[in-house]
Amino acid sequence: MDYNWNWAVLFQEPYLGWLLSGLQWTLLVAIAAWVIAFVVGSAVGILRTVPNRLVRTLAAAYVELFRNIPLLVQLFVWYFVVPELLPEDLGLWVKRDMPNPEYVTAVVALGAYTAARVAEQVRSGIQTIGKDLVNAGLAIGLTPLQNYLYIRLPISYRIIVPPLTSEFLTIFKNSSLALTIGVLELTAQARQIENYTFQGFEAFTAATVLYLVITLLVVLLMRLIDQKTRIPGSVGAN
């Protein structure tokens, strides 16, 4: 292999700055998208468990729609197509005046996509609760809404902390797709450093290590949260 190693390039300006700025954008996309994914995903997941058949079907349709189209295609539809479909004034505003359109689009697309996955976790969390435990809440006179608020949701969310963690890590990794519409996140910056310096090995290694470190930190943090909030007696508790 014929290759000129130069690890120092990673610590030279402007390349170090590029990497850090890339990391920052990766986190900004991931965290903002997660907020959307968590809120929308929870709502859709809960709606999939309500008695009303029409509501359940609509929620299921959301999940199927967003799960069965590649994220890249969704991203392009949000970026190139949706502004055309909006009412004229709003469409114009999105195209002309909306600040940082690439970032906003990436966040919305990633959030809406991941919401479908979060919804499935929330639904399965709610549905693992036995029928008689649900009955027990109703039997002491809780309304169905109260039963969701005080019994079904608190138990479900604590069960699904581990799968939600992996959904967050997925969103963190998927934020790299934002580069296709011009967000200079971590992967894009590594690619850019390769293009400028031909030190691809060093640049991609730096990005890989940064992704690994963040993943590790998230996993450790969530393990801590999982242990602290775990319902005594549930699977894995000690």
Binding site: L133, N135, A136, L138, A139, I140, G141, L142, Q146, G233
Partner: peptide, 30 residues
Amino acid sequence: LPLVRARIGMVFQHFELFPHKTVIENLMMG
């Protein structure tokens, strides 16, 4: 129905205590 159910106590085969609440909280919630 909630008001009717609150007046009829129900005990289940598998207890069905609320696992995320302490014993006393189980009794206080309703």
